[in-house]
């Protein structure tokens, strides 16, 4: 298995070299730019690990079994949406031995893969599983319709409706601890309410991220009941 690492930071390339030496890995290619990939013959079992902000043209990722993204800072929703990064394919730099091992195995060893923090619901239900199920059912019944209403409102640029719908979704986001979109939803509601868009395209893409996280949470909740 070939590992290809792309990073424009010399310091981070050195750190990665040191890590692979420590782990005794040999089939590793380290590059500075995405454009350098053109010169490589990619085999069907290569792993690509790349910095999120590395320069060069976004390549065609066919031929790689997995693509992992790394960055020195937390993954922002807009970047996640732009590069279509799965949260379990993102790692914070510096890359640790465990991180690299989990990338190679193709499985994440992160402690908690769940997108939900159900501590508030647990406090509320106090062990009453029926109550918990009832709450989940309300989520599953209402959220898909609210997503449709939101996407329609975005399509029609109906800012009042956008703000109202995101507001209605926020109580659910907080109740079910969907932390990845808690702050984002608040910002989106405020932006729609005050019509203070920096960029409409960015707003649309962030709404897209919000709805995809909600759908992901719905799938997770469906499996709970």
């Amino acid at each position: 298995m070939e590992i290809i690492y792309i990073d424009d930071s010399e310091f981070d390339r050195l750190a990665f070299k040191r890590l692979i030496k420590k782990m005794g890995l040999s089939s590793v290619t380290i590059m500075e730019s995405l454009d350098e990939l053109d010169s490589l013959n990619i085999s069907g079992d290569s792993i690509l690990i790349r910095d999120c902000y590395v320069p060069g043209k976004e390549p065609d990722y066919s031929g790689f079994i997995e693509v992992y993204y790394v960055s020195g800072s937390k993954l922002s929703p807009s970047l996640q949406s732009k590069l279509k990064i799965d949260t379990d394919h993102f790692y914070l730099k510096p890359i640790k031995e465990d991180d690299l091992e989990s990338m190679i195995k193709g499985t994440s060893v992160k402690e908690n893969d769940s997108s939900l923090d159900l501590s508030y619901l647990d406090e509320l239900s106090d062990g009453d599983e029926d109550f918990k199920r009832e709450m989940v059912k309300v989520f599953l019944k209402e959220v898909p319709d609210q997503i449709d209403v939101l996407l329609d409102a975005v399509k029609n640029q109906d800012f009042k409706k956008i703000a109202e719908t995101i507001h209605a979704l926020r109580t659910k986001i907080r109740t079910f601890g969907i932390l990845s979109i808690d702050e984002l939803s608040e910002n989106l509601e405020y932006t729609a309410k005050t019509k203070s868009f920096d960029s409409w395209t960015k707003f649309e893409s962030e709404v897209g991220y919000l709805t995809s996280e909600l759908k992901k949470s719905a799938t997770e909740l469906e499996n709970m009941i």
Binding site: L124, S125, D126, F131, E134, M135, V138, F139, E142, A168, T171, K172, T175
Partner: peptide, 16 residues
């Protein structure tokens, strides 16, 4: 309150 979820939560809090 217009959210069924929130109504349930308040009912639950009263009960609890």
């Amino acid at each position: 309150e217009d959210s069924a979820l929130e109504i349930k939560k308040v009912e639950r809090a009263f009960q609890k």
